[in-house]
Structure formats: structure tokens, C-alpha cells
């Protein structure tokens, strides 16, 4: 593969990776938003930094799969802590989330600055996981991210019925004998996986935006879950590609924040112009 229609190789690689991640993150994020667990993803994403640094310290390697594996372990661990705190201390959801988020992020930052002050050889570049480093993705990285995204989307498709039921009517699902708790954990694990896959694109600080904004925007347009999933995926994909194009055209423009801004713009458009729930529609038909 050289350049396709004059698009440079690196742009193609990054665009392919980011488009896949943006789509899958949008799809999976729908369940987090519907289950009102959007902030759990935020806690998980902030915890990934500690996982990345710890993975480097333990293995001494800094290839993407190793670091992302560390990030995933940390994300799952933080979600485990979240559940534990909520159950055992009767702390409210938001307080428990804030606690886990700040503590795990603090650990990550402390490890990172400790590394840079001690001058451990080869530690350079870990700080890129704070804000992302899309432009530096190689073809192997892109394949890794695309495979993770594909698997996540396939899992969602396979469990669509269960996930939808649990998201909308957990009480009914439980009464009908569904393992609600298990399905819930599976959904949260999928969100964690996408948060980790989104790390190179947006970094630990911004990656939640990928699993929150597209679903929220898609929700404006539809009440049907399958439609919402596809729409959220498309919006996530479009935002990701928008960020890549901007970063390829304008020098010294970081991709991650641009992706988030494009996603936010798509949300604003949705919130204004969606046919039923949009601001414009409600103005025209005030009786609704």
C-alpha cells in the first residue's frame, strides 16, 4: 500500500484505525448511556494511565499491545473497586465514581512523574497516553485496534437482545430469569475494552468522550436500540475521521481533542435538529 488517491500512507493507517475505534466505541457506549453508567467509563479511562505505566514497569516493553493490556487490567480493576465501594460502603454512585477516578488517575500521574524524575531508560513516550498519540500509529497498531473493535461489535451483535432488555427494563429482565448482574458486568467490560482501544486516539483524559458523546447524540434521533447503535457508531466514526482529516491538514494540531470537538459539534446539531426530541421540533410543537 502506498498512497491511495493521493492520501499519504500514515493518514490512511491512522484513519482506518480511528474509524474502527470510533464506530465500536459509539456502539458500545450506547449501553453505558442507557444504563446511566456513563461516568463509570470515565473512571475506567482515567485508571488506564496507571495500567500503562505499570505494564511498562513490569515488562520493560512499550509496544502497544503490552501497554494496552496493562490499561485494560487497570480499567477492569477500577470498575471492580467501584462496585465494591458501592456495595460495601453504601457510598452514592457519583461519589464512588469520583473517588475511584481521582485516586486511580493520581496513581497514574504519580507513577509517570516518578518515572521521568528517576530517568528510567525507555520510559519516554508513556506520557503520550494522557492525551493520545494518534499520528504515531503504525500498521500493526492499527490492526490491533481494528481487531479489538470488530470483536467488541460482534459481541454486542450476538448479545443484542439481552443487552437491550437489561438496559431498558432490568426489573423485568431479572423477573424473567435473565442473569442481569452478569450481563451488566459484560457490558461494563465492553465499555472498558473500548476505552482502552480509544486510548491511542484520545488519551486517558478525553477517551470517555468517544463512548459518551456519540450515543447521547444518537439518542436524540431515535428510540429504537438497533437504530441508535448504528447511528452512534456512524457519529463516532465521523467524529474520528473529522479529527484525523483536520490533523492531517493543519500542522501542529492534536488529533484527540479535535475528535472530541467534532463529536461535540455533531451532538449540538442533533440536539437542535432531531425530529422528535430536537430543540427546533419542540419549539414548533410546544404542546408536546
Amino acid at each position: 500500500m502506498t498512497a491511495f488517491m493521493g492520501i499519504p500512507y500514515n493518514t490512511l493507517v491512522v484513519a482506518a484505525a480511528v474509524a474502527a475505534v470510533g464506530f465500536a466505541a459509539g456502539v458500545v457506549g450506547c449501553f453505558g448511556v442507557l444504563r446511566r453508567r456513563a461516568l463509570a467509563g470515565d473512571a475506567a479511562s482515567h485508571a488506564t494511565l496507571a495500567g500503562v505505566v505499570a505494564a511498562f514497569l513490569v515488562t520493560g516493553r512499550r509496544d502497544l499491545p503490552t501497554l494496552l493490556a496493562g490499561a485494560f487490567v487497570a480499567a477492569v480493576a477500577s470498575l471492580g473497586c467501584l462496585v465494591l465501594i458501592r456495595r460495601s460502603t453504601r457510598t452514592r454512585d457519583d461519589a464512588a465514581t469520583a473517588l475511584v477516578l481521582s485516586v486511580s488517575f493520581g496513581v497514574g500521574i504519580a507513577l509517570l512523574s516518578g518515572l521521568s524524575a528517576r530517568g528510567i531508560p525507555g520510559a519516554g513516550g508513556l506520557e503520550q497516553f494522557l492525551l493520545g498519540h494518534t499520528a504515531a500509529l503504525t500498521a500493526a497498531d492499527a490492526v490491533t485496534l481494528a481487531v479489538v473493535s470488530l470483536v467488541v461489535v460482534l459481541v454486542v451483535c450476538a448479545g443484542l437482545k439481552e443487552a437491550t432488555l437489561v438496559s431498558f427494563d432490568p426489573a423485568f429482565a431479572a423477573a424473567s430469569g435473565w442473569p442481569v448482574g452478569l450481563i451488566d458486568y459484560a457490558l461494563v467490560a465492553l465499555v472498558a475494552a473500548m476505552v482502552v482501544a480509544g486510548l491511542p486516539a484520545a488519551g486517558a483524559v478525553l477517551v470517555t468522550a468517544l463512548v459518551v458523546i456519540p450515543p447521547v447524540a444518537a439518542r436524540q434521533w431515535t428510540d429504537r436500540v438497533p437504530t441508535m447503535l448504528v447511528l452512534a457508531g456512524a457519529i463516532g466514526c465521523a467524529a474520528a475521521l473529522g479529527g484525523v482529516v483536520a490533523s492531517a491538514l493543519v500542522p501542529r494540531l492534536a488529533t484527540g481533542p479535535t475528535i472530541v470537538l467534532v463529536a461535540a459539534a455533531l451532538f449540538v446539531v442533533s440536539a437542535c435538529f432531531a425530529p422528535e426530541r430536537g430543540w427546533l421540533a419542540r419549539c414548533v410543537r410546544p404542546e408536546r
Binding site: T11, E127, T134, S247, V250, P251, A254
Partner: peptide, 14 residues
């Protein structure tokens, strides 16, 4: 070294 290198920078250097 703080700022992320953008795609435009990578493409220019290639």
C-alpha cells in the same frame, strides 16, 4: 515534547 505530533507533521517529515 509535550505536544502531540500531528499527522500533518508526520506526513511532512515522510
Amino acid at each position: 515534547t509535550d505536544s502531540e505530533a500531528g499527522l500533518a507533521d508526520i506526513n511532512r517529515l515522510v
